[in-house]
Design a protein around this nucleic acid. Structure first.
Length: 581
RNA sequence: CGGGGUGUAGCGCAGUCCGGUAGCGCGCCUGGUUUGGGACCAGGAUGUCGGAGGUUCGAAUCCUCUCACCCCGACCA
């Protein structure tokens, strides 16, 4: 390929809206352009990268025994109503209506469609197991699309769905997919980590996420360097403190703390350590069902956390009565507790309020908390003496660096990651909802066991750049580089010697199957170098009159500090050997 | 959905407070000189100032509405 015939719109400056490095570089290098919020065109150079990722994903899926198919992007509402997800998925799903006023959605995922295929076609255990996958455009109407293709609304996903006659076989395939994913990300040259994960909206039992490690990642990961424990912070268990709660040693005292509405500021005022404080979060739990006792009333809960800890909403929502909880409004707080937010505490709350303490908060003695009187806090507070023991003690908080690993084999660290893959054991959730059954070897009708496995193909490109770049631009891992070699022909339009040598090398490399981009523009060297470096092509061969007079060219890897001179007659073999290595 | 911000040439921005008929850098076009790290000189093209309405002799600028985009939040009281 020649730059003069390619489409390589590079930018010196990125549009102002792009703030993340990978987003800026993808725009500047001419990989993508924005059409609208969360909507991106993949330009030719970017598409080549996307195709590289797809090819590796496809190769490893095929190798793992999965079979590719292609399902419609537009899906009828009826399927989603069968599983109840037409309502559950909410505004994240783009709903559309055809000319007959029938409801459809642009598929955000394909469990319903693939389960529909399975229930129509799979009848016998002899047809199992089966793993079907596709690489396709999805649409999810994200609350806040951002970071370019990292969190776009329209994106490319590989989604696979497996069907099994038994849970044991599902677990085998789950492991098989886990291994295939590890091979994919290894081949792509990414620093990644698999972590235990929450199953979220997709549902099911076991689940792991694959994250590309990057400081800009939106997820926090907890891992233990001295064991193999790794989990998304959403899921990571905060174990109870090893030492029992000390005996009370101070009297409970009400102290004025005007204007001090955070644990930090209260502790600062009182000269106490933050770990000695308790914050109380007022939330409204699941309303009783219509017709049940107390229907319509919003049950308030007070969640207690140590001052230095943060609430894990996913954990909290799993507690009885807290499914789908929300934070109480200021009006609700004042009505129930008689105090404005900022001075809330568990002492003397009405019996209608259920107090749930995090394990670490429950282990405190002589702690500081709000007095439920505006402008005052309490010190020296003790459970069992100044207030009842909490109605429930639970794991409510996010783990922090230094917490003990839940497997008891070390101490947790926190890293940030970009989620690029997710594997789930769905079990029979969708099969039962949609009546997807098979006859087992005893002639019994059974619901299919299912697994599902996703890879964010387009997100991988952004994640890889986030992890592989320098001050000059992208540094693509070889497996996903749009071209393997760039030829910078200095004076291509002026020098017969340069043109002949560049054309010959270009043609020879292409004949060998090497993906080569010849910069044959009438540009000054600095412009060519800057553009070629920006695009992240791993190797650059520079041909100019200066070198050719001595019979040599210069070759430089994108990570090399300086070029290497190689004889013109040997460069083809030289670079081929490097690429094969 | 709440809060904040920004919309002016392809990109980055100034001009808006204080109304007088639009500018800078890069890019683009033409010619010339250059040619191993984003060249130089000369000439040139490009804007319904996001949109609609209003105020005014006159609106990028003031007012109203609206759209788009970005950031933060929607959890720690």
């Amino acid at each position: 390929m020649r730059v003069s015939r390619f489409f390589l719109p590079t930018l010196k400056e990125a549009p102002a809206e792009a703030e993340l490095t990978s987003h800026r570089l993808m725009l500047r290098a001419g990989l993508i352009r924005k059409l609208g919020s969360g909507l991106y065109t993949w330009l030719p150079l970017g598409l080549r990268v996307l195709r590289k990722v797809e090819a590796i994903v496809r190769d490893e899926m095929n190798r793992a025994g999965a079979v590719e198919l292609f399902m419609p992007a537009v899906q009828p509402a009826e399927l989603w109503q069968e599983t109840g997800r037409w309502a559950v998925f909410g505004p994240q799903m783009l709903k559309i209506r055809d000319r007959h006023e029938r409801d459809f959605c642009f598929g955000p995922t394909h469990e319903e469609v693939v389960t529909d295929i399975a229930r129509r076609e799979i009848r016998s255990w002899r047809q199992l197991p089966l793993n079907l996958y596709q690489i396709q455009t999805k649409f999810r109407d994200e609350i806040r699309p951002r970071f370019g293709v990292m969190r776009a609304r329209e994106f490319v996903m590989k989604d696979a769905y497996s069907f099994h006659a038994s849970f044991e076989d599902l677990q085998r395939e789950y492991r098989n997919m886990f291994d295939a994913y590890s091979r994919v990300f290894t081949r792509l040259g990414l620093d990644f980590r698999a972590v235990a994960a929450d199953t979220g909206a997709i549902g099911g039992t076991g689940s792991h996420e694959f994250h590309v490690i990057a400081d800009s990642g939106e997820d926090a990961l907890a891992f233990c360097p001295t064991s193999d424990y790794a989990a998304n912070v959403e899921l990571a268990e905060a174990v109870a403190p090893p030492t029992p709660r000390p005996a009370p040693s101070q009297p409970m005292t009400q102290v004025p703390t005007p204007g001090r509405t955070t644990c930090e500021s209260v502790c600062e005022l009182l000269g106490l350590p933050l770990v000695q404080s308790v914050k109380a979060l007022a939330v409204i739990g699941t309303p009783p069902a219509d017709g049940a006792a107390g229907a319509g009333a919003a049950p308030m809960f007070l969640l207690l956390l140590r001052g230095d800890h943060s609430l894990n909403e996913i954990k909290a929502a799993k507690l009885p009565g807290l499914a789908g909880f929300r934070f109480a409004t200021e009006a609700e707080i004042v009505a129930t507790l008689g105090c404005v937010p900022g001075y809330l505490g568990p002492v003397g709350v009405p019996a209608s309020v259920t107090v749930i303490a995090d394990r670490s908060a429950a282990a405190l003695a002589d702690f500081v908390c709000g007095a439920n009187v505006a402008g005052f806090h309490l010190t020296g507070v003790n459970f069992g003496r100044d207030l009842p023991e909490p109605a429930q003690v639970a794991d409510l908080r996010n783990v922090v660096a230094g917490d003990p690993s839940p497997d008891g084999r070390g101490v947790l660290q926190i890293a940030r990651g970009i989620e690029v893959g997710h594997v789930f054991q769905l079990r029979s959730k969708y099969a039962q909802a949609m009546g997807a059954t098979f006859l087992d070897d005893a002639g019994q009708q059974q619901p299919l066991e299912m697994g599902c496995y996703g890879i964010g193909v387009s997100r991988i490109v952004a994640a890889a750049i986030e992890q592989h770049h320098d001050a000059k631009g992208i540094v693509f891992p070889p497996a996903m580089a749009p071209f393997a070699v760039a030829l910078a022909a200095i004076g291509y339009r002026k020098s017969d010697a340069v043109r002949d040598a560049a054309d010959a090398l270009h043609d020879a490399l292409e004949a060998r199957g090497v993906e080569v981009l010849l910069d044959d523009r009438d540009e000054r060297p600095g412009v060519m170098f800057a553009d070629l470096e920006l695009t992240g092509i791993p190797w650059r061969i520079t041909l100019g009159d200066r070198g050719l007079k001595a019979g040599s060219v210069e070759v430089q890897h994108r990570r090399d500090a300086a070029p290497t001179a190689v004889a013109l007659g040997e460069i083809e073999a030289w670079i081929s050997a490097r690429l094969a290595a």
